[in-house]
Nucleic acid binder design. Structure first.
Lengths: 147, 147
DNA sequence: TATTGTTATACTCTATAACTATA
DNA sequence: TATAGTTATAGAGTATAACAATA
């Protein structure tokens, strides 16, 4: 009888669910390091997210950044205010629609973004301790999922 | 010449760094879902974290929860206040040291924790879409890293 | 009328510092 | 004196609502 029942959680995703849980655990354990990195750069987590999502070349409207950060547009005003005060981000007018303000990284902002990416890319010890083969296999599977 | 140079980033961790970056990307993409789940349960992210770290059986001091949540003890007061108001958490006195207050989930808190775990365990579509073999391989490698 | 970004408001998270009560 | 938890304070993130400028 019980073999006939189909659980709401599809069997096809059971190992993925455990993998997801383990990744979640790994992330939670790194929260302290994320905060420490943000403090190294004198940035809040949201300011870090904004810098990650901007570039000097392709400027984006405030609303697009709000979407990328998963927050309301009204928050972006304050976040960008502070980044602009620190000279990392610039507001530029848009030629076609004078309501929108385009955001772009300054040169200094670009330097900060690169340094930040370098620091963030360092994997947790428990990942770095995996064998080279396991690391490659992990990377390859994640590439398949995300690529 | 260049083959003699050793980069500051050890070659041993290069695939791990890319894997870590991909996991980070996956997490950022799920932020909206995390927030939605928290709202379903009428909890803030920190309240969710607190519930995840408590149980009815093993009560823990406020300070230990602060450590688990990577925040100052003064924050825990407010977080626990609100959870206690909603009947999910209980403060209990400690017999040996009357300064410390032990935290435990109520029965209702335990129910919420279980429902929350069920909802959070659902993996992102891109992981669930992996082949069964890839899912298992991913899970097994992460078990090695975290187990 | 509808939309973009800002401002105002209110609540939560956050750390620091001062405080209470214990130890 | 030192420690566990609270309270007070101030800065930041958060959404909602009201607003200005523009479309």
């Amino acid at each position: 009888m019980s073999r006939m029942a189909t659980r709401p959680t599809s069997p096809r995703s059971v190992p993925a669910a455990e993998a997801w849980g383990l990744m979640h655990e790994l992330f939670v354990s790194q929260k302290g390091r994320f905060i420490a990195i943000a403090q190294e750069f004198d940035l809040t987590p949201m300011q870090m997210g904004a810098i990650r999502n901007l570039s000097p070349d392709r400027s984006v409207p405030m609303s697009e950044l709000a979407g990328a950060l998963h927050c309301d547009a009204s928050n972006v005003t304050g976040i960008v205010d502070r980044l602009e005060t620190h000279g990392l981000v610039e507001r530029r007018g848009d030629d076609h629609d004078r309501r929108v303000k385009m955001l772009a990284l300054t040169d200094e902002g670009l330097r900060v973004r690169a340094a930040l990416a370098e620091r963030m890319s360092q994997p947790p010890e428990r990942l770095a301790a995996l064998s080279a083969a396991d690391q490659r296999a992990l990377r390859d599977i994640l590439r398949k999922a995300l690529g």
